[in-house]
């Protein structure tokens, strides 16, 4: 068991991602330990969201390996060659990974409850009754127990995002990817959503990878911050260090630009 605990939850080994001529990630290496809460910061286009999308297999990498719990996830080396892992095995690994999106992406053809139980019933094989019990707990946790049977289109953005969080948690992920989850929300409801996520961070040991512009949230929740620029990690530190005394000039520039416009404390 001790051996397993030291295996990183996530490992990038020389990961390359190109969009046409634009190389977004050029041989990226980094690891995330189990239970880590890592925030990725950096200017837009620096590759943060691409990392989450690669981890969710929404994009295909062009080089390198991604390992989850030490297991090859999307590609593996076979006979000295890098080959794609078949979808069937990807699915087994992907089961451990969940994601919450900027645009919520709830299924409009289903009620709130149906959104949450769809995958637990059909992917995890839970009985509907079990899944409903769990979904109701989660709705309670995100403060939307009374919206159980509502249509997603009747909910506000903040409520939709809280349902999306409950939906992701219903799959019991070991790794949760949060992709700018408050960027599409009105400022006054950002705090609700972040409050829910803070509680998740406090009450579970889910490994989290967070892309956000909410620096106070990043500071409160994460134990590591990676500063990205042009697809490379240019600085890595504990939040206290990076937010108070960033080493790199580029980090200082970025933080003063972000924090400058973010004068209102949203926590």
């Amino acid at each position: 068991m001790t051996d397993r605990d030291t295996t990183p939850a996530i490992e990038f080994r020389g990961v390359v991602k190109r969009f046409g001529d634009n190389t977004v990630l050029d041989g990226l290496d980094f690891t995330v330990a189990k239970g880590d809460r890592v925030t990725l910061i950096g200017p837009s286009g620096s590759g943060k969201t691409t990392i989450l999308r690669l981890l969710m297999t929404l994009e295909e990498s062009n080089g390198g390996l991604i390992l989850i719990d030490g297991e090859p996830y999307t590609h593996e080396m076979r006979g000295g060659k890098r080959v794609a892992v078949p979808e069937k095995r990807r699915r087994q690994v992907r089961r451990r990974v969940g994601m919450v999106f900027q645009q919520f992406n709830l299924f409009p053809n289903m009620s709130v409850l149906e959104n949450i139980i769809e995958a637990p019933v059909h992917v995890l094989g839970l009985s509907t009754a079990q899944a409903v019990v769990r979904a109701e707990e989660l709705l309670e946790q995100v403060g939307l127990a009374d919206k159980r049977d509502a249509r997603c289109t009747q909910l506000s953005g903040g409520q939709q995002q809280r349902v999306a969080i409950a939906r992701a948690l219903a799959m019991d992920p070991e790794i949760l990817l949060l992709d700018e989850v408050t960027s599409a929300l009105d400022p006054e409801i950002v705090a609700d959503v972040l409050g829910v996520l803070r509680e998740v961070a406090e009450t579970t040991d889910i490994t989290m990878l967070i892309v956000t512009h909410e620096m106070q949230f990043a500071r409160d929740v994460s134990n590591r911050v990676l500063m990205f620029d042009h697809g490379r990690i240019i600085e890595e530190a504990e939040p206290e260090v990076i937010f108070t005394a960033p080493r790199e000039e580029r980090t200082q520039q970025f933080l003063s630009a972000v924090l400058g416009e973010d004068t209102a404390d949203r926590s």
């Binding site: 969710m56 929404l58 992907r94 709830l106 053809n109 995958a119 059909h122 992701a168 799959m171």
Partner: peptide, 23 residues
């Protein structure tokens, strides 16, 4: 159908046929 719907189905690990049929 918006790309986000496909992506959310992948994130929930729904199978290909299931995703088409239900989402």
């Amino acid at each position: 159908v918006p790309a986000g719907q496909w992506e959310a189905s992948t994130a929930l690990n729904l199978g290909h046929v299931h995703r088409l049929r239900r989402v």
